[in-house]
Amino acid sequence: MGCVSSKQFKRAAEHEDPAILAKETTFSVSEVEALYELFKKISHSIFKDGLIHKEEFQLALFRNSNKKNLFADRIFDLFDLKHNGVVDFGEFVRSLNIFHPETPLAEKISFAFRLYDLRGTGYIEREELYEMVLAILNESDLFLSDDAVEQIVDQTFKQADLNGDGKIDPDEWKAFASKNPALLKNMTLPYLKDITMAFPSFVLNSGVDEEEL
């Protein structure tokens, strides 16, 4: 299809080559190009510099650039592979690739582990899980007593912390997540399977029209 050929994808020239990104990921070249539509929209929503800033990420997720959310923060930090405070197009595509329906489960399990390992110690620790449960209750305007929260954390550790050392290591997490696939629900975005359908505007807008007018 001429309308989605990479030759015509001139506007992404300052970003990484879609062919390289397609080679490294589950996405085809035209899907990478369609993702550029989404990237462009998000990265121009506030700062218009072609990079996604945290506020823009929050705006895309919540329609609100000031909404503080522990998990959105974590996801943003994991997307920011170069740790420079912004997400460029290559980081965006490589990170979203983990959420592709056809990406191996092992990659999704590992990403979720890093998400939950709040302090990057290599383990999901009790205090981290406690903190995350509080955050989720807070986000949902739910109140539970400290005892009830402790109980949830205890229960979870009873199931996941197989060697009983008070922290969940990557192998324990792998076993636990494999046994409970519902835990990985958020790690698959069906939208990514038909990304060119989700962003038909790319197909309509791409090509010579904008470049030559």
């Binding site: 998990f71 449960v133 986000e139 979870t156």
Partner: peptide, 25 residues
């Protein structure tokens, strides 16, 4: 049915649900 903290997070967190990003179209 036992309550599991990670289940709670994955079913309730809006920040860990990236679909919102695709629904703004």
């Amino acid at each position: 049915r036992t309550c599991n903290a990670f289940q709670l997070i994955s079913s309730m967190s809006s920040g860990f649900d990236l679909s919102g990003m695709f629904e703004s179209e």
